[in-house]
Nucleic acid binder design. Sequence first.
DNA 1: CATTGCCCTGACAACGTTGTCCAGGGCCTA
DNA 2: TAGGCCCTGGACAACGTTGTCAGGGCAATG
Lengths: 352, 352
Amino acid sequence: MADSPRPPTPPGGPRGPEPRYGNRPTMKDVAARAGVGLKTVSRVVNGEPGVTPDTERRVQEAIESLGFRRNDSARVLRKGRTASIGLVLEDLADPFYGPLSRAVEEVARAHGALLINGSSAEDPDREQELALALCARRVDGLIVIPAGHDHRYLEPEIKAGIATVFVDRPPGRIDADVVLSDSFGGARAGVAHLIAHGHRRIAFIGDQPRIHTAVERLRGYRVAMEDAGLEIDDSWVALGSTAPERVQKAVTAVLSGPEPVTAIFAGNNRVTVTAVRVLAGQDRRVALVGFDDIELADLLGITVIAQDAATLGRTAAERLFRRLDGANDEPTQVALETVLIPRGSGEIPPSD
Amino acid sequence: MADSPRPPTPPGGPRGPEPRYGNRPTMKDVAARAGVGLKTVSRVVNGEPGVTPDTERRVQEAIESLGFRRNDSARVLRKGRTASIGLVLEDLADPFYGPLSRAVEEVARAHGALLINGSSAEDPDREQELALALCARRVDGLIVIPAGHDHRYLEPEIKAGIATVFVDRPPGRIDADVVLSDSFGGARAGVAHLIAHGHRRIAFIGDQPRIHTAVERLRGYRVAMEDAGLEIDDSWVALGSTAPERVQKAVTAVLSGPEPVTAIFAGNNRVTVTAVRVLAGQDRRVALVGFDDIELADLLGITVIAQDAATLGRTAAERLFRRLDGANDEPTQVALETVLIPRGSGEIPPSD
DNA sequence: CATTGCCCTGACAACGTTGTCCAGGGCCTA
DNA sequence: TAGGCCCTGGACAACGTTGTCAGGGCAATG
């Protein structure tokens, strides 16, 4: 019975941990079965040269009959590369991040790497926990959509060779590659568009002020207003959670104050969706431009500032793999252009 | 200089592979720095008992000053568990799979596991390649949304202890846990709804016939028609790619044949979206019920058969972890109910 | 026929961690 | 004071793979 996959635990002496991988065959078992050396099996499995066709056949047969599959955990330990990258994003369920994630995956796949991803749920602690867990797994590279504002915790990791690229928002207190959309320019153009259609009282409803894109878009709004010589009433600006209830309240408020607005700029896709719902229940026609494109927005006639999530992800991933291939230049900042897509809601004239 | 993190490569003798992890410190280095044994460092890192507070402090200091982080690759090799699960789905960018994936991730997180996911792009070979790559990584468990119809390739893996659960579609030629939505019942109810509103000529436009859900939904359509004693004209049924061009053609065709339909049942979210676009350009009002809910469908008044992607994912993941915790019962089949949400498009009366 | 050189092959160490076992020291008890 | 126990710490092997190196067989060459 010398060729059973694994002898039963020897009576005495140190023993490994209990379950193992259900006693999977190893290269050693394959070698024993095929009557060759361990290294020869390794050579066959990896397609390395220097194996007689006949030997190779015997090894292949042993592999088949035992159902052997190489243990990549061990391989990783030995080689020092995991052929996997990590992606920390905010919420995989958000329709904005799905395409981004998919684009990253495609690039990874083209480089033979797998993708491990996790959602930070906009919580800096959770972002850090996730990113460090990925580093402990020794992912080759890391793509992060920051939730927090201090990424010094990644310094030792980056120094230790884990390539890191930030997307959608810049990192805090650390110098690294970044790929962004032009939030400022996009918001500015969108608000200018409303102004060009005659609006003077325009609201800005956006995400929480600790999120970089929210602040940048607000800045675009302010500058566009200033460019047109328009004063901003504080009651027109609302930053906060994008939970439907909060947005609903904010929209209702800017429509009913002493100086009701005639147009709304929505800071991201979540806000836009709720704003559209609220506006649908209004008698008055209120103009709307939203940041981020949304599925079916064409049918609803929603004017948007579109950013290309897939390109964002692809660009970041390509940057990452360029680093992994040895690129050693200074960290770069890329800002992708946004596109204004007029569909009706942004071209509604002021109602007063 | 006895405590530099790693001595330079010794002059002779075998050497490891080249780059390594940028020379990261190991427990051995930490031990040397703290003046303790290797195992003591391991104990501190893992919070195991049996270490004096003073010793622990010294070790912690060494860890901090060296920037040590445990190498989970090695840990995995030793422990035989990776604390990660794999998810093979069709397309991460599809708004249906985002929430599903996120739900799986949440459950995994609750069990301290990371999620590795990949898209099969509806290609059976790619599904297999991905699933096997995940197995080679020795994920603890696997959740698969099948693209192919033969999953015998997973048999050795399952036998070797990789828990596997299929979601959204049943596996082929293998017995395993499955979590589905009730495609048949949902479609049947949706078509019955149209019939109840007076329709007699109803089209079914669905996904490719090799996809299980497409076939089940078609079956639901057929049975509902039969229940009502209605004949089906072959020209009313179109299965195929969900690419917009194909769907557009199919919709146009069923509206313009010799026996134009007065209502359409759309087989999934992709089909619905395109169908809505086509119908928006028609003079005639055509009723529509779609399988899958869609964001903003409420505003567009689209009647749908809603399935809960998040619950689908959560249920599957919970089932998986129950297996990982040792549950050994027979494979189970779960079918989740669907909900008909009337919003207008499904209540349009026949136009002839 | 002897020698050189190539081609296959396998023995061995090492990757960084954790499980097991043993040794030494301090403290308590008799 | 002696004996025993517990607590702490370390030596060692092992997880499954791959890089290095050395040895044996064989053909070609002088």
